[in-house]
């Protein structure tokens, strides 16, 4: 058992960690290269940078974006992310592991705060899973990995919490550590190849759309002309809010 734990903490951890870092760098660079190529192909070279930056930053705090519709989701999601990022990086025990292996260390969270954040992540993961499973529009948009990730992410937190508070399961300490280490390794390996890659792609998320999704100049006008609706107002010029109103049917929008 101890040999498996040592392997998970040593060589396997190095493999998974390196794969995560290099894989994220790879996907970041490939995205940027793809974006540059798309930009070079486009006829329309106008990129609304100010707007894209504003959008990107506003999505960092999604509460501002989804407050009107799904406030619970917005709050839980933000809290979940805070714990998810801070605890693995700044937990005292993790920092100590780094210090013992590579020789340098950094700031660590107070013990009580780390504990509470861990509990928030566990609760948040479960709530996010349930909301996704129960809320019909989310279910329609979800892939398999969307259900798996919130639960998978909580596994190292549950086992980590049990490992710190050994009073819960004193005899199963090694098993707890084993699951903790191997589930964390599994997460690190899969991050660059699944949606969790948004941890580095997030700054590019709006930029990619703004730079690469271009129709040829004047394409919209030509389509309308071809369809013979030249005198009709187009919905693009309407305020965005109108689209979010479920009560308005397509006809009503067109008549506006």
């Amino acid at each position: 058992m101890q040999a498996w734990i040592d392997f998970g903490q040593g060589p396997l951890f190095r493999l998974c960690f390196a794969l995560m870092i290099l894989g994220l760098m790879r996907i970041f660079i490939l995205t940027i290269i793809g974006m540059i190529e798309a930009y070079n192909r486009n006829e329309d070279k106008i990129v609304p940078f100010a707007e894209l930056i504003r959008l990107t930053f506003s999505w960092i705090l999604p509460i501002t974006r989804v407050w009107t519709k799904r406030p619970v989701y917005g709050v839980v999601s933000v809290l979940f992310h805070i714990g998810l990022i801070l605890v693995p990086l700044f937990l005292g025990a993790h920092v100590l592991l780094w210090k013992n292996s590579v020789g340098f260390a950094w700031f660590s969270l107070p013990h009580a705060l780390a504990d509470n954040l861990t509990l928030i992540v566990i609760a948040g993961g479960i709530i996010l899973f349930l909301m996704r499973a129960i809320y019909r529009p989310s279910r329609a948009l979800s892939r398999k990995q969307d259900y798996i990730w919130p639960l998978l992410l909580t596994i190292p937190f549950v086992t980590g919490y049990l490992a710190v508070h050994t009073a819960f399961a004193p005899s199963a300490y090694q098993w707890t550590m084993l699951i903790h280490i191997y589930s964390a390794n599994l997460i690190m390996v899969t991050i660059p190849f699944t949606k969790i890659a948004h941890c580095v792609l997030m700054p590019l998320s709006q930029l990619v759309t703004g730079v690469s999704w271009k129709f040829p100049l004047g394409a919209g006008d030509k389509v309308i002309e071809t369809l013979g609706h030249k005198d009709r107002p187009t919905w693009v010029k309407e305020p965005r809010v109108a689209l979010d109103e479920d009560s308005l049917s397509g006809k009503e929008i067109a008549s506006k």
Binding site: L12, R14, L15, C16, L22, G23
Partner: peptide, 10 residues
């Protein structure tokens, strides 16, 4: 490249 480099670190 990425897989091989990670394997090398291992």
């Amino acid at each position: 490249f990425v897989f091989a480099a990670a394997f090398g670190f291992m």
